[in-house]
């Protein structure tokens, strides 16, 4: 497998790439992981990962600043149906609209908005930071072997709210429901950081690498 992790200047991707390498070898898979900002690498890749930290609009702008990358990404994910994983803001970018610092267009792959977290309990801290328990009612290859209540690491103040509930694959509870995993067809988005979620995170990454949508 050729895994392309898209680098658009949003933080460190070296340790993320290492996590994909580790997950691959733990699952006895042969993967080549590259960190890239080249459109041509997306055509050559078998799996595509879009990470992201920071503000929605900054990330979108960073992605747009790379020559031909959005076009190559849409070709690879929408037309060629390659397995895609969006992480944190990379997941949020899959939505049609982001509401952080104004209203901004996302990639529009999942119909829905990226809105500020609404907690019923005013004493709960924002950002939602730390380890929370995944809950899911649907089965999906990405969640194979993951036990209900497994902990993954979050740090975010906004969340994706898809219009179509069936695009939500797993949730966590934090003064209300936060959508933790979204997806449709060949694409998955995770609000948490699998590359920072120790054994559970590596397991999820290896599920993504094994996935044949």
């Amino acid at each position: 497998m050729n895994v392309a992790v898209i680098d658009y200047g949003s933080g460190n991707l070296r340790s993320a790439a290492k996590a994909f390498e580790r997950a691959s070898s733990m699952a006895d898979l042969e993967s080549k992981v590259i960190v890239t900002s080249q459109a041509s690498d997306l055509s050559a890749a078998s799996h595509i990962v879009l990470p992201g930290v920071g503000a929605f609009a900054d990330c979108k702008k960073g992605l747009e600043s790379l020559d031909g990358v959005i076009e190559a990404l849409e070709r690879a994910v929408i037309k060629d149906a390659k397995p895609f994983l969006g992480i944190c803001v990379g997941m949020q970018l899959m939505a049609s609209t982001g509401l952080e610092y104004g209203r901004h267009d996302g990639l529009g792959w999942i119909d829905g908005e990226v809105a500020p977290l609404q907690c019923s309990d005013q004493t709960l801290k924002i950002p939602h930071m730390g380890w929370n328990e995944l809950m899911f009612s649907t089965s999906h290859p990405f969640l194979n072997g993951i036990v209900q209540g497994s902990h993954v690491y979050f740090v975010h103040s906004y969340g994706v709210v898809p219009k179509d509930e069936s695009h939500v694959l797993a949730r966590v509870n934090y003064g209300g429901v936060i959508n933790a995993v979204i997806g449709r067809d060949n694409m998955i988005g995770v609000q948490f950081h699998p590359e920072k979620s120790q054994a559970v995170g590596l397991h999820l990454i290896s599920n993504f690498l094994k996935w044949r949508p």
């Binding site: 460190n12 070296r14 340790s15 290492k18 996590a19 580790r22 690491y153 740090v155 950081h193 590359e195 920072k196 979620s197 120790q198 995170g201 590596l202």
Partner: peptide, 11 residues
């Protein structure tokens, strides 16, 4: 930091 982040997949 570099060496740690390459093998410890935690925050």
């Amino acid at each position: 930091v570099r060496h740690t982040a390459e093998e410890c997949f935690m925050p």
